[in-house]
Design a binder for these strands. Sequence first.
DNA 1: CGTAGTGTTGAATTGAATCAAGTGTCGTGG
DNA 2: CCACGACACTTGATTCAATTCAACACTACG
Lengths: 262, 262
Amino acid sequence: MNEGSSKEALLQSISIDAKPQNRAPKFCPHSSNVSCTSCRLNELCLPIALNKTEIHQLDQIVERNRPYKKGDHLYRQNDKFKSVYAVRSGSFKSYVVSDNGVGRVTGFFLPGEIIGMDGIASTQYVNSTQALEHSSICEIPFSQLEKLSHQLPNLQHHFFAIMDNEIAKDQQVHTLLSSYTAEERTASFLLGLSSRFARVSLSPVRFLLPMTRGDIGEYLGLTVETVSRIFTALQRKKLIEVNNREIVLLDMTELRNIIGAN
Amino acid sequence: MNEGSSKEALLQSISIDAKPQNRAPKFCPHSSNVSCTSCRLNELCLPIALNKTEIHQLDQIVERNRPYKKGDHLYRQNDKFKSVYAVRSGSFKSYVVSDNGVGRVTGFFLPGEIIGMDGIASTQYVNSTQALEHSSICEIPFSQLEKLSHQLPNLQHHFFAIMDNEIAKDQQVHTLLSSYTAEERTASFLLGLSSRFARVSLSPVRFLLPMTRGDIGEYLGLTVETVSRIFTALQRKKLIEVNNREIVLLDMTELRNIIGAN
DNA sequence: CGTAGTGTTGAATTGAATCAAGTGTCGTGG
DNA sequence: CCACGACACTTGATTCAATTCAACACTACG
């Protein structure tokens, strides 16, 4: 249905760093961009649970790098661990490549989400992470974050919580992979994306996939072909509508039932 | 081969709280048991990276509960999050049960390992955790651990690292489940156990499985039947020897090749 | 405009699940 | 101390979901 236009609209809505507002840096004159205080994501990101003064302190250690373009690496497997990153706009994927060249996608990251927490233990990153589209991030040198955490109990607690969410998320994936069928995995994946888009005030029923079918397959433990087939199957059942990267969730209830049935 | 005796020997060696030593409490008079300082696991557990004074402070907040017997729960899904636990002896499994009654094992825990870090974020445990055999644990009230972490940078850092290991471990499982065959998963599982036993100075080639085939299956995303079949297949190939719960790894190199081949 | 990357669809194959029947093991109570 | 019952494990036959192999269409970018 009226292809071009709806697609454009979507493309706009999905791109977080849209147009107008958030230019002028306020608290971080050395930065080319918004401070944590004025960042629209501060309700989701590290600043959550911090008061004004505390956020200001956090601001001091955040480095706002140049934008990354599609395919650019944030870091690579075995690089020395140095920072964690908060996605400001765009999206990223983490992946590992085993010796024999088989790749596996370990995660996708949307705005407001934290990247790079693997590596704290080992002092090296265990994943590679690259941008899926034009994206921008905030870099937070971990040693400084750690130091600041001593002074700000809220920050320490919050950071524990973030890491813990990571664990919880991984365990959900564990469940997903160990007992779900291809259809259940795919439905669950779409619903997961949906609520993550909702978190950043994007439509939970209409969005563009930033990743390829191949990426999805490597993440869900399925082949490209299977992912593609499931998409068409779900479309045939009128649960979703697919046009290339554009997804419309037509029947969230029924999608949830697919998983709930398990 | 000479069943009874070898099995007894194993049973002894696997049971961490063996016999002689570690009785008399040293630093913790209120405890019925050893202090962190004198605990044989202190090289693996939380005290790592702490100095004597710091360990003593940690000691103050550790509660050494009565032993748990097989099937006893440490906590259940949705219980209010209160503590993390360090396994002193024995073993535990974590699991979730979905609405329809299908269970999934989310992890196994051996001596020196930390249980209960799910829940920090949500304030409720997301798993249930129960003893697989007679076991004892150290309970560490999290609020106090958090407070102490402010004072002891080493502890904070170490705890970050522990959580991070948890993440790394989950990601390995992710890989395992998303692209490995039943045989690869099983081989990987056995090798994983092997090195965890080695960590606590038990034989890495000869050990007793504390869990059932069913547990293994629920953990690896396989059925009981498949796990059983793979065990016999690996035995036929002379890579392992199986007698009920007793496992002997005959050819670790070849077991690693099974995985490496992927 | 052409080429590489991305996505779809079909047919054949296969690895693991399911169904089914049976043996082995352990803990409990008589 | 033995017998019983519940649970744990094994093995075989069949089925089925997802992979593999193969061919082709679409899209997007230099």
